[in-house]
């Protein structure tokens, strides 16, 4: 691929083919990135759009925040720590799958399993609730405390 010759200044130069191929690869890469940004989705990572925090949120938006609340066998109600160290599932993963979880709440079972496995000495989860908190914006400012709504409930299997 790389026909290498040593140039006058002592630089290691690329041969015609090696240089042509490299420039072509760079141009194709740029093309794929532009294509991804203009029309593709996250599915084509790493060539997808850089869409993190890219949406325009209106001044009167209702901001939603999804969490999982658990009733434990110690009788307490806790917010499940949605991260790797907590229940082994990240909040973003849950938020990306809300529709599926509402249709099939058994997907929440792995949250309970993850917690039980990582924290065998802590109270176990008995019932899980997927809850959506909604904060209302008025003219770009937060208006009052959030309202909560239960989207799905799952009785944990042992």
């Amino acid at each position: 691929m790389a026909v290498v010759t040593t140039g006058g200044a002592g630089d290691v130069r690329l041969g015609r083919a090696g240089k042509g191929l490299r420039v072509l690869v760079a141009l194709v890469g740029i093309g794929l990135l532009v294509n991804g940004s203009v029309r593709a989705t996250d599915d084509v990572w790493p060539f997808g759009p850089m869409s993190q925090y890219a949406m325009s949120v209106p001044d009167d938006a209702a901001i939603t925040y999804t969490r999982v609340s658990a009733l434990t066998d110690a009788g307490t109600t806790v917010d499940v720590p949605l991260n790797i160290e907590g229940a082994g599932v990240a909040r973003a993963e849950i938020e990306a799958r809300i529709g599926e979880i509402v249709k099939d709440p058994s997907l929440l079972q792995q949250v309970a399993d993850g917690w039980a496995k990582k924290h065998p000495d802590k109270p176990k989860y008995v019932r899980l609730e997927l809850i959506r908190d909604t904060t209302q914006l008025v003219e770009g400012r937060v208006e009052g405390p959030p309202k909560s709504e239960v989207l799905a409930t799952w009785q944990v299997r042992r």
Partner: peptide, 21 residues
């Protein structure tokens, strides 16, 4: 580019409530 695209190719992102969100 993604910020322009998500708004339908107009500049609304910088004046929106995205950071508040």
């Amino acid at each position: 580019v993604a910020k322009l695209r998500s708004a339908g190719w107009v500049v609304t992102w910088p004046g929106s409530a995205v950071l508040t969100w």
